[in-house]
Design a protein around this nucleic acid. Sequence first.
DNA 1: CCGCCTTGTCACACTATTGTCACAAGAAGA
DNA 2: TCTTCTTGTGACAATAGTGTGACAAGGCGG
Lengths: 229, 229
Amino acid sequence: MTAKTVLIVDDEAPIREMIALSLEMADYRVLEAGSAQAAHSLIVDHQPDLVLLDWMMPDTSGLELARRLKRDPVTAELPIIMLTAKGEEDNKVQGLEAGADDYIAKPFSPRELMARLKAVLRRTTPYGIDEVVEVNGLLLDPVSHRVSSNGKTLELGPTEYRLLQFFMTHQERVYTRDQLIDQVWGGNVYIDERTVDVHIRRLRKALGESHQQLIQTVRGAGYRFSTKY
Amino acid sequence: MTAKTVLIVDDEAPIREMIALSLEMADYRVLEAGSAQAAHSLIVDHQPDLVLLDWMMPDTSGLELARRLKRDPVTAELPIIMLTAKGEEDNKVQGLEAGADDYIAKPFSPRELMARLKAVLRRTTPYGIDEVVEVNGLLLDPVSHRVSSNGKTLELGPTEYRLLQFFMTHQERVYTRDQLIDQVWGGNVYIDERTVDVHIRRLRKALGESHQQLIQTVRGAGYRFSTKY
DNA sequence: CCGCCTTGTCACACTATTGTCACAAGAAGA
DNA sequence: TCTTCTTGTGACAATAGTGTGACAAGGCGG
């Protein structure tokens, strides 16, 4: 699961920062824009997954931006949450008509914001298609999150599971420890390369005699998952 | 496992036949319809397990049919896969909003079609809405809203009941806390993820020693209801 | 208004998992 | 064979993820 990117559009920097802080603590990537103009180019460049849009903006109103985004086919599916001052119920209607997916009245608690944000993201990102992978009697089923070796369920820790999943969907190719950290641990972690060795070891152990040869050491380079040995 | 019936709705006969051929080779029963009208009566008569629906249809568009099916409680549960010409990403969103469970862009390989089809069938509920569900002596009767374990009635709160019902009709699949909130609490609620844990705990407690192992924790992922442990 | 039940949240207890280290074992090259 | 890299292995302390009990707020029928 990759981190979602959220764009905050508000002309008041303190508010932006407050929101940005909450979001970053919850592991979202955050972009900020102080004007509709800036917002638009950020959207084109960075393709955020969601926009938090303030209703009151000096130049072009937030409403205008929302309309524009929804009209353009490229950005039409981008979910938008409108922020607005308390009690202005009319705005809510207008905002939703303009294509906003949800609406939050200021002042709001960070907690509420997060909850709504998740709800919107949840219902706009459809589930992926998860396919079962099978190699020589080794079966990985992402749907039930289960791995079995010749029918017998294996006990894998989360990291071992992800590692195996990556290998099974990227067979026959050598990956350096760095690449594995990138792919399995997810981009922005700082861990020792040798840690990979340890997890490889754990995975091999869990796979047992019957399948541990599938994970091969390529000396001086990295590791490879292959049926040929 | 009995053969699944798939209904193909497309106004172009050659395409229908191509798809039908692939499906029959994979042991599916196939129905064909050239119009939304025909499709509707076939659905009523033959109750297929899945509908492959073309987006572009002369009379009522495929989209319309999808909406109609999802609106009618009788057919609401019927999984739908939309077919559409390549690159029309807007359609994807509209299609998914209309209730389609998946979406395939033409031209597609038979292989891809089969994979998606299997995936959709796997994750859609094989159970009728009012059917009694039974697992290892654990019995849930949606009509009387009652749950019994080896004949003895259990006391479940409303939420625990819904949670259990969801699990029993969606076995063998891991659900994240988010997804459970979506499915059991209903789309637009804002509650803490950890609340799910508490309800899981309450449900397990209520199920007693005999059945609490059915609800399994998948560390780092979520929960799963399964008879295999 | 009262008592009863359900619910969401919190604080704390508990455990599996994780990253790292020190050392053992192998491979490659001279 | 000996030296020098590189990888395997077991142990361990810190941490992240779950289990668990308690509680206050809210709903609901009386």
